[in-house]
Design a binder for these strands. Structure first.
Lengths: 231, 231
DNA sequence: TTCTTGTCACCTAGGTGTTAATAT
DNA sequence: ATATTAACACCTAGGTGACAAGAA
C-alpha cells in the first residue's frame, strides 16, 4: 500500500484547482509527489515510476473578470472549456532515479519524485514529462516488481501495481491563472520565499521595479483580488 | 580497465604533495576521484566502491621555516616523520551511490565519487571515510561483479577487481600545510573562486589579504588583528 | 609550538515567481 | 485578447579557504 505525503497541502491546492507550471527547460512540480510505501518484499527488486494521463479531452481557458474600480487588473475566477484537447503529447514515463532497488530500501524512507520535471516542449530531449498547457492531468504512481523468472513478461500484469491520488490532479499552465494558487505556492514553497511579503523580519529591503511604498501588495501580483486600502 | 580522469591535475597536486582536508562534518576530496570504465559486461550488475589504505605506518609533521623579513608567516617546506602511526581508523568503504547498476550504465559516462567525504571524527555516523590527520593514504577503487549464482561467495576472488592510481595519494590534514597546495586548490576548484586574485576580469573589486593597496588585507577579516591605520 | 575547531564571506548550482516582450 | 518566452532578482542548499580561538 502507498500513502501520499503532504496530503494536507495537496488538498489545499486541489481545493483551489492546482496548477503546475510547464516550461521549455522543464519545471519541477510543487508540491512534490512523495509517498511512503508499505508491504513490499524487503529483499525483492522494484522499479518505481510515474506517468501522467489526461483527465479529460478538453482544452481550458481562464475566465477573466475585470476587477472593480480601483483594482488595475483582472480577477481570475473559473476555468472554461475552450474546446477539444490538443493532440496528445508523447506519453512519457519517469522512473525514480533510484530504480531498481530493494523493497527494504524503498520502504525505509519517503520516496520523493523531486527530480521529475514537466515541459511543454514536444521535442524535449532531456527525458522530461511532456504535457499540453491548459490541459488537466492526473499523476499516476506505478510499482513494478522485477521478476527474476526468465519468462517474466508473462506475469507483467501481476507484477505491476498502480496508485492514483485524485488530490494530485492539476492543470498544466505556462503562467499561473489563479492568483490564489500563486499565493499558496509562494507561501509554501521554500524556493519562493523571496516573494513573501508578510515576513516579520528584514524589512525594508530592495523592492521590484514599480514597487512603491503602500503599493507593494499590487506590485507583487498581477491579479490582486482584494486590497481596500490603496490610494 | 579503468582510466583516471583529470590525471594531469592529479599529477600537478601529487608533485607538490597532495593534501586533503578532513573535518568533523566531512569534507569532499579535491580533485574529485573520477574514472572512465571499459570492458564491463553491459548487461551485468556491478558495485563500485572506494576505500583508503595507509601508505606507511608513519605520522607526519610539517617543517616550518621562518619567512624572510617582510612576510608575516612561515614558509612550509617539507614533511618530517613525527613518529609511528596513530591507531588505525575504522576501515570504512564508500559505495558509489548508483550501485548496483548495469555495466552499460557505468560505462556510458564518467563515474564520479563526488559524494565521498573525509572526516577525522572517529565517532562519525554519517558513513564518511574516517582518516587520521597527518597520515598518508592511498585511495583504492574496487569493482565488484554481482554474481547471480547462489554460491557466489565462493567466487568472491574472481568477481572482485581493484585499481590503484598512485598519483592520487595524499596526506590528510585539518589545515593546509603547503601554501602551494592551497594556491593550486584555489586556482582549480570552482568553489574556491572567491579566493582567486588574478582573475583577468571584473576588476577592481574587493581584494584578498595581502593584495594591495596595503589595507585591503584587513578589510576581509572579521577581527582585524593588526591594522596599522585604524586605531 | 603545533594541530584542531567553529564561523564566516564568497562562491557554485539550481529552484522560485515576476515582468516585459513576443507569439498566436 | 490570450498564451508563451526569456531574463531577472531573490531564494535554498551546500562546497571553499581564511581566520581566530581553543586544545594538546
Amino acid at each position: 500500500s502507498v500513502q501520499l505525503e503532504m496530503k494536507a497541502l495537496w488538498d489545499e491546492f486541489n481545493q483551489l484547482g492546482t496548477e503546475m507550471i510547464v516550461t521549455k527547460a522543464g519545471r519541477r512540480m510543487f508540491p512534490t509527489f512523495q509517498v511512503k510505501i508499505f508491504g513490499m518484499d524487503p529483499m525483492a527488486d522494484y522499479m518505481l515510476l510515474m506517468d501522467f494521463v489526461p483527465v479529460d479531452d478538453k482544452r481550458y481557458r481562464q475566465l477573466r473578470v475585470p476587477s472593480p474600480p480601483g483594482r488595475y487588473a483582472f480577477h481570475s475566477s473559473s476555468w472554461l472549456v475552450a474546446g477539444k484537447a490538443d493532440p496528445a503529447t508523447p506519453g512519457r514515463v519517469h522512473y525514480h532515479p533510484d530504480s531498481p532497488a530493494k523493497g527494504a530500501q524503498w520502504m525505509k524512507q519517503i520516496v520523493s519524485f523531486d527530480k521529475l520535471k514537466l515541459t511543454n516542449n514536444l521535442l524535449d530531449d532531456n527525458g522530461h514529462i511532456i504535457l499540453n498547457s491548459m490541459h488537466r492531468y492526473q499523476p499516476r504512481f506505478h510499482v513494478v516488481y522485477v521478476d527474476p523468472r526468465k519468462d517474466s513478461e508473462k506475469y507483467a500484469e501481476e507484477n505491476f501495481k498502480t496508485f492514483v491520488f485524485e488530490e494530485t490532479r492539476f492543470t498544466a499552465v505556462t503562467a499561473y491563472q489563479n492568483h490564489r494558487i500563486t499565493q499558496l505556492k509562494i507561501a509554501s514553497n521554500p524556493f519562493a520565499k523571496g516573494f513573501r511579503d508578510c515576513d516579520p523580519e528584514d524589512w525594508p529591503r530592495n523592492h521590484r521595479p514599480g514597487a512603491l511604498p503602500l503599493m507593494s501588495a499590487f506590485a507583487r501580483s498581477r491579479n490582486p483580488v482584494s486590497s481596500p486600502a490603496h490610494q
